[in-house]
Simulated assay, not measured.
Amino acid sequence: MSYCSDTSSVDDELETLRWYHFDLSRHAAEALLLSNGRDGSYLLRNSHQGPGSFALSVRAKDSVKHFHVTRKSGGYAFGFNEFATLQDFVNHFANEPLLGSETGTLIVLKCPYPWRVEEPSIYESVRVHTVMQAGRTENDLVVNAPSLGTKEGYLVKLGAFIKNWKQRWFTLNRNELKYFKDKMFDEPIRTLDLTACSAVQFDYSQDRVNCFCLVFPERTFYLCAKSGVEADEWIKIIRWKLSQIKKGR
Score class of each variant (00 low, 15 high):
residue 30 E to C: 13
residue 156 V to L: 00
residue 246 K to L: 02
residue 89 F to A: 08
residue 68 H to V: 13
residue 226 K to I: 05
residue 116 R to D: 15
residue 102 E to N: 10
residue 104 G to W: 09
residue 206 Q to Y: 02
residue 212 F to M: 02
residue 48 H to N: 11
residue 109 L to S: 03
residue 221 F to I: 02
residue 188 P to E: 09
residue 154 Y to G: 02
residue 90 V to S: 12
residue 36 N to I: 00
residue 162 I to K: 10
residue 20 Y to D: 07
residue 115 W to A: 02
residue 76 Y to G: 04
residue 186 D to K: 14
residue 55 A to G: 10
residue 213 C to A: 05
residue 149 G to W: 01
residue 128 V to Y: 07
residue 106 L to E: 07
residue 227 S to N: 01
residue 167 Q to W: 04
residue 57 S to E: 05
residue 152 E to Y: 05
residue 117 V to E: 12
residue 240 W to F: 13
residue 64 V to H: 05
residue 207 D to W: 01
residue 11 D to E: 15
residue 107 I to F: 06
residue 165 W to M: 01
residue 76 Y to S: 06
residue 194 L to K: 10
residue 196 A to W: 11
residue 238 I to G: 09
residue 238 I to D: 08
residue 149 G to V: 00
residue 247 K to M: 11
residue 246 K to E: 04
residue 235 I to M: 05
residue 13 E to C: 08
residue 27 H to G: 07
residue 122 I to S: 13
residue 64 V to T: 07
residue 165 W to I: 00
residue 185 F to Q: 12
residue 218 E to Q: 14
residue 231 A to D: 01
residue 203 D to C: 00
residue 220 T to L: 01
residue 81 N to K: 11
residue 237 I to S: 06
residue 44 L to I: 14
residue 168 R to Y: 04
residue 178 K to W: 10
residue 209 V to G: 02
residue 148 L to K: 10
residue 179 Y to R: 08
residue 167 Q to L: 03
residue 117 V to D: 11
residue 16 T to Q: 14
residue 72 K to C: 13
residue 16 T to K: 15
residue 68 H to I: 08
residue 22 F to L: 09
residue 186 D to P: 06
residue 157 K to C: 01
residue 180 F to K: 03
residue 151 K to F: 11
residue 17 L to F: 03
residue 140 D to E: 09
residue 127 R to A: 10
residue 129 H to G: 14
residue 55 A to P: 07
residue 70 T to P: 06
residue 163 K to M: 03
residue 149 G to N: 01
residue 49 Q to A: 15
residue 80 F to K: 14
residue 238 I to T: 12
residue 163 K to T: 00
residue 131 V to L: 12
residue 57 S to Y: 12
residue 57 S to Q: 06
residue 58 V to T: 12
residue 131 V to D: 08
residue 80 F to A: 11
residue 165 W to P: 00
residue 82 E to T: 15
residue 159 G to H: 01
residue 176 E to R: 13
residue 46 N to A: 11
residue 56 L to D: 11
residue 61 K to E: 15
residue 222 Y to H: 02
residue 110 K to L: 02
residue 124 E to G: 10
residue 85 T to K: 05
residue 110 K to N: 04
residue 213 C to G: 00
residue 104 G to I: 05
residue 144 N to T: 05
residue 195 T to F: 04
residue 47 S to L: 15
residue 51 P to A: 11
residue 155 L to V: 02
residue 156 V to H: 02
residue 53 S to Y: 15
residue 61 K to T: 10
residue 218 E to T: 14
residue 13 E to S: 13
residue 148 L to F: 14
residue 179 Y to V: 07
residue 71 R to F: 10
residue 247 K to V: 06
residue 1 M to Q: 11
residue 195 T to W: 02
residue 243 S to V: 04
residue 41 S to G: 00
residue 169 W to N: 03
residue 241 K to Q: 07
residue 228 G to S: 03
residue 216 F to T: 13
residue 215 V to W: 03
residue 52 G to I: 06
